[in-house]
Design a protein around this nucleic acid. Structure first.
Lengths: 342, 342
DNA sequence: AGAGTTCAAGAAAACGTTTTCTCAGGAGGC
DNA sequence: GCCTCCTGAGAAAACGTTTTCTTGAACTCT
């Protein structure tokens, strides 16, 4: 395991100055073709590779783009990650992902690391940092795109969706189909996203004169098990029946799966006895029994959108592309009752 | 946006030499307590942070550990990633993830990048690289742990599971319960993992004298849709009935979900008409109707195991911890027919 | 033909650290 | 009281690049 060859070795081998070698590997301007060939040949022969650290040290910047997310386990992140990666790597950037695991300290730590490493830009999904903190980081000069959050004073660099509107839409769909007693199953309300969805549900109910029928249940967590447990308890306590609930409006597909399971276990059929809606359209949503009516994100398109936005923030160019739209996917988990219209 | 303070600025501010400042932030040996306080105070006041690149340049190594995976979309990777991260970050390493998207060129490129960045170690999930190539990379001095693959000449640094054995086990479970005509639903056979599972199924059949009843169907892909499509076609063509199939043994849970959906659509009930088994135990497996009998990995434990192995490879210490075991999770998708025993 | 201009290439400084080498001064032993 | 040893701290080299400044040659223009 001998020492790695460096730029000086190449220079010596090629019989030129280090400056020339550097120029060959960089701006390329103003270097004689035959000299450049000589350098490339020499570099190739001794297996030269530029030392990224020396380069970064002197240039004070890199071609790295980082993504800080909360948890890898969040299912739809994966396609979003891929989307971002495909865009930024095509633009010549190197893409790295790391996670905060919902810890504010880790968030700060990882962002600091990205800063210390002079990343060209970072995409962050943060729950711990305050709006001010995010704006501060950006003010220090780091190009940031914030996903799934609407940061005050930084809106133009946030990729945020109208969860309120979409949850309102799918709730309205239930109402239009004749449902009035609709249970809203919410994930933990600590996250802005969940709060917005909850507000969307409430807005739909109120708009249709069903303010008094609002029933919200906040689950611990937001997985299959949370949905199952919440509905099981409501059924067991008799609250479900006493409230005359005919539909469950869930904030994500996992909650919906759990809810459906609890309903079936209680002998209720879907959608004949109870209708269910999801949010997210995970692949399984099309393959459950019944298949789930839900709201589809195009995760991959969203990822690409984030990637493009990141590039525009780095280049300080305007970015006016429109956010990929959502779409309600009608499947078989909704029943059209009495006066309902489709 | 003024220049970042560097070590010299701290030295000047504290009225000491740069060497002393460096010593304060590093080995700490042999530096007078009151001088160290002076340095720390000065550093704090001017907001000094060591430049990672300068440090890495001179030290020739980093405290970064990287993970190269194939696709972020592969579902069980997320918990594994988290497991690795929790272990290595606790040990003081920084953890970065990147993906190859199944391209051999990208795999090579990313590994080269990790090498160029003097990562302390890398975990790779590779499908493109040959065994020799992997061994070569390791020979160059980079500590590598290979996941989900058994690299010849590098076995002790591979984290590999007995997929063959586990698939054989769950197939045997079906056989012991009286099933003889068992369809094996395989993902794309390009991946070693899938081939091994297929061999496991075949071994179980042969061992029980059912060699002639072997029926393997290789799907395009390995998702819900692939399983659905494969079973739908078999049902439509009549092959399913003509072969008298009473159970479907799937290589993963997604295939199983798809298969169940196709069966139900054809009016067959599970497990009364057809039994189904999965592999993986994704969260939904407990919440489908019926719930799915499958093989559970403890992804998080596996991740931690990989992380610990990575650390041991870096430190060149022996590592003899045993691989986290799998477990068959019996749920309601299997019927015990005629002579079957549980 | 000579002055001015362009251009390619080299010399050397710079980036921000770590670390080896050196040195001064104090402690300890005789 | 002198020599040795040890300790803590500074000076300076080193890491591998990029880039500014310089230089000299070749070319153009009058």
């Amino acid at each position: 395991m001998q020492k790695k060859p460096n730029l000086l070795d190449v220079a010596e081998k090629a019989g030129v100055s280090p400056a020339t070698v550097s120029r060959v590997f960089n701006n390329n301007s103003k270097v004689n073709e035959q000299m450049r060939q000589k350098v490339l040949k020499a570099a190739n022969e001794i297996g030269y590779k530029t030392n990224i650290y020396a380069k970064a040290l002197i240039e004070g910047k890199t071609n790295f783009i980082g993504l800080l997310l909360t948890r890898f386990e969040i299912r739809h992140y994966s396609s979003i990650i891929s989307g971002i990666e495909s865009v930024v790597s095509k633009a010549g950037y190197r893409f790295f992902v790391t996670s905060s695991r919902y810890s504010k300290e880790k968030e700060m730590e990882k962002i600091n690391l990205f800063e210390d490493l002079n990343f060209a830009g970072i995409v962050i999904i943060s729950v711990g940092l305050s709006d001010e903190e995010i704006v501060d980081i950006s003010r220090k000069g780091m190009p940031i795109v914030v996903f799934d959050r609407n940061v005050k004073g930084y809106q133009d660099k946030c990729v945020y969706f109208d969860y309120h509107g979409y949850q309102k839409d799918i709730t309205s769909l239930l109402i239009r189909n004749g449902h009035e007693r609709i249970l809203h199953l919410s994930g933990t309300t600590e996250l802005q996203v969940y709060r917005e969805k909850c507000n969307g549900y409430e807005a739909a109910m109120e708009e249709h004169g069903l303010a008094d029928d609002k029933t919200v249940r906040v689950c611990k967590g937001a997985g299959n098990d949370s949905g199952y447990e919440a509905v099981r308890q409501l059924l067991e306590s008799g609250e479900f029946v006493s409230k005359g609930i005919t539909a469950i409006n869930c904030q994500n597909d996992q909650l919906a799966f759990g809810a459906m399971c609890a309903l079936k276990e209680a002998g209720l059929s879907i959608p004949e006895d109870v209708s269910v809606t999801g949010f997210g359209d995970v692949p399984e949503a099309a393959y459950t029994t019944p298949s789930l009516t839900t709201v589809r994100f195009n995760h991959s398109a969203i990822g690409k959108y984030i990637g493009k936005k990141m590039l525009s923030v780095i280049k300080k160019e305007p970015f006016d592309e429109v956010v990929p739209p959502f779409e309600i996917i009608g499947r078989n988990s909704i029943k059209y009752i009495n006066g309902g219209v489709q």
